[in-house]
Amino acid sequence: MARRPTIKDIARRAGVSESAVSFALNDRPGVSDGTRARVRRVAEELGWHPNSAARALAGERSGAVGLVLARPAHTLGVESFFLQLVSGIQEVLSAGRTALLFQVVDDIDAECALYRRWWAERRVDGVLVVDPRTQDPRPELLARLGLPAVTVGGTGAPGPLSSVWADDARAMARVVDHLHGLGHRRITHIAGLPGLAHTARRIASLRVEAAARGLGPREVHSVVTDYSDAEGAAATRRVLAEPEPPTALVYDNDVMAVAGSAVAAELGIAVPGRLSIVAWDDSALCRVTHPRLTALVRDTAGFGRLAAEELLTVLAGGPPRTREGEQPRLEPRESTAPPPAAY
């Protein structure tokens, strides 16, 4: 394996002292413009890059930001949301030559411990905090540590951290309005992980929208899952086996919606003839499934870009603030229709 080039190698090749190399590479006075240019050219030829650990010890930035995900690992490979979110984040960070340090952990306690270690070791300059909880210790911890952070998917209310958010309540209102307008009166929401703030907001919004239309918890309710296709399918089987099954199902992600559609087909329940299906997040899966699934369409990559831009603003000294992402729009497709008259 080739040895990594050092400052000594650059000094030898450029014909200058090691201190001159240090001055040149760190934009410090003490060398001429010509020497600075020659040193940088040699460093590039040798493939030299600064040691991030050494820079951290010197009090300089690490050049990286962190993203920790405390979710069941088996759900990550099938859900498109985080892939799109990270692609948007990476687009902004790459343009600024900032690295993204990503790690999956078991739970919120492990996530908090990782933040403490990263900050103590100066591994990251800031973090993007995803999946806000209803009872969330992370904002207070990060504020206490002094670790710059942006919450992705907050409520929009001011807090100790900057945040980017989307209005889940308005999005759910659009879904209920669509289904109710078609004539559906028995609607079940196959929700995501309990304890997540956006899960709670969607459930609460569903109740409010149902009550506004004279529908109670017997007709309209939510069941929670882990976002996986397996739990989405299992929840679908349970609710369709009820004495008065729903005529419409709203799934919190695309994967569960596709799994639910497959369960309906297996049970001989026609979509949308006897059952309407809505997916919260649109994806290629929703568009290639037969019938194509009605879905909430939003620019998830754009939401990631917004989050990364806000974190860079915070790192530049900007004050905490909230920024709202693009409002999702409902895209009606072939999976929703009026319920049969018998229902």
Rank of each mutant, 00 (worst) to 15 (best):
P5V: 07
T6H: 03
K8A: 15
D9I: 12
E18P: 04
S19P: 00
L25I: 09
N26Y: 00
D27S: 12
P29N: 02
S32F: 02
R36F: 09
R38W: 08
E44C: 01
E44D: 14
E45V: 00
A53R: 14
A56E: 02
L57V: 01
A58R: 14
S62C: 05
G63K: 07
A64E: 07
R71Q: 14
R71I: 13
P72K: 08
T75M: 11
L76M: 13
L76D: 02
F81M: 12
F82C: 13
L85I: 07
V86Q: 13
S87V: 14
S87L: 15
S87Y: 13
G88M: 10
V92M: 11
L93M: 07
G96Q: 15
L100M: 11
L101K: 04
Q103G: 13
V104H: 11
D107A: 08
I108C: 04
A110C: 14
L114Y: 00
L114C: 10
Y115T: 01
W118N: 04
W118Y: 05
R123K: 14
V129S: 05
V129Q: 01
D131L: 02
R133H: 13
T134M: 09
D136K: 08
D136E: 06
D136Q: 03
L142C: 07
A149C: 06
V150F: 02
G156R: 06
V164Q: 04
A171W: 05
A173M: 06
V176T: 09
H178Y: 03
L179H: 04
H180F: 12
H180C: 06
H184R: 11
R186K: 09
I187R: 01
T188C: 11
I190N: 00
L193C: 00
P194G: 11
A197K: 11
A200F: 02
I203V: 15
A204S: 13
A204W: 01
R207E: 12
R207Y: 00
R207N: 01
E209H: 11
R213D: 06
R218S: 14
R218E: 15
E219P: 05
E219D: 15
H221R: 15
S222G: 13
D226R: 06
D229P: 00
A230I: 15
A233R: 03
A233C: 08
R237I: 12
R238V: 14
L240E: 04
A241H: 05
E242P: 00
E242C: 07
P245E: 06
P246L: 01
T247I: 05
V255K: 00
V258L: 08
I269F: 02
A270W: 08
V271E: 03
P272Y: 05
G273E: 12
S276C: 10
V278I: 10
A279S: 09
S283Y: 03
S283P: 07
A284L: 15
A284C: 10
L285E: 11
V288Q: 14
T289H: 14
T289L: 07
T289I: 03
H290Q: 14
R292L: 00
R292M: 09
T294M: 10
A295M: 07
V297M: 13
A301I: 11
G302T: 05
G302D: 09
F303N: 06
R305G: 08
A308T: 08
G318Q: 07
P320W: 03
R321S: 14
R321G: 13
P328L: 09
A337Y: 02
P339D: 05
P340C: 09
P340H: 06
A342I: 12
Y343M: 15
Y343E: 15
